[in-house]
């Protein structure tokens, strides 16, 4: 039984079949990438796994239990965190507060305990702040803890999003085009970071445009084209796959 099983996933929008009968597995502890040209259905697939889209048919099984069609917050509680291609931070909150929201699943205080904070609640709050600060320093954000997240530059906002996702101590991390908008230097740093995350024992599933990043860091790659999986395997096989080459470079070059 694989860690994450994507089984016969299909989703259409009106007449457009965005994802059609896609299946693949993600093994625990690996970095798996889903690539494909624009409109290949990557984002749809991703949103189906993350619970951001209502499913049509198929199944997504995480650690032996279906998560398909669950609301996003319940998928999160199963141990899955995500980042967004177009960063979604809580702009008016500080960097530390953003990351502390990532600790939501690791803390318990409800409305009553929040309104009347007893020593136990205060301790939990302190621990949340300390852990969050730890993840901030991992991402090099220690000097902007009290800065408003919406006011940071793009690279740092991406770092806050990573820290927030990591703060929830997920077992599976979903990365939606993490290199989008980054320069070459930042992309190299990102590659190191993603490897570091894998070495922390977190399984990573990413969708990505940037081929150099994907070939560099992925343990396995699945290729989508027009909603259909056309290839799957380790990077060096994918690079040689004639169908993948034709999809990316056009038929004339094949």
């Amino acid at each position: 039984m694989a860690f994450l099983e994507i089984k016969n996933l299909s989703r259409s929008f009106g007449g457009l079949r965005a994802v059609e009968n896609v299946s693949f597995n993600v093994e625990k502890g690996l970095i798996k990438a889903v690539i494909g040209p624009n409109g290949a259905g990557k984002t749809t697939l991703f949103n189906l796994v993350a619970g951001a889209l209502e499913p049509h048919s198929g199944d997504v099984i995480f650690k032996g239990r279906s998560i398909y069609g669950l609301p996003t917050h319940r998928i999160a509680w199963r141990g899955i965190s995500r980042t967004y291609q177009n960063i979604k931070l809580f702009n008016d909150m500080t960097v530390l507060e953003n990351i502390m929201v990532g600790r939501h699943r690791k803390s318990r205080a409800g409305f009553l305990r929040a309104m009347v904070p007893l020593p136990g609640t205060r301790r939990e709050e302190r621990e949340s702040a300390e852990k969050a600060a730890g993840f901030a320093s991992l991402l090099g954000l220690s000097d902007v803890l009290d800065a408003r997240a919406g006011g940071l530059d793009f690279g740092r906002q991406r770092a806050v999003e990573f820290a927030r996702a990591l703060a929830s101590e997920p077992e599976l991390l979903l990365l939606d085009e993490p290199a989008a908008g980054l320069n070459i230097h930042e992309t190299l740093e990102l590659a190191d970071l993603i490897r570091k995350i894998r070495d922390m024992g977190i399984t990573v599933l990413l969708i990505e445009h940037d081929m150099s990043l994907v070939m560099d860091i992925s343990d396995e790659i699945a290729v989508l084209s027009y909603g259909v999986k056309i290839a799957e395997g380790p990077p060096k096989d994918i690079q040689k796959n004639p169908e993948v080459i034709s999809v990316y470079l056009g038929d004339d070059n094949a």
Binding site: P71, S81, F90, M93, E97, V101, H104, M115
Partner: peptide, 30 residues
């Protein structure tokens, strides 16, 4: 009571919902 609430885990969750409902959900906030 409310000052305590807004400074707590619950208060952060509420402000997170205000900031981005989608991201708040993805962080496990119902």
């Amino acid at each position: 009571l409310l000052l305590n609430l807004v400074r707590s885990r619950v208060g952060r969750a509420l402000r997170a919902i205000h900031g981005s409902e989608e991201a708040a959900g993805a962080m496990g906030i119902d």
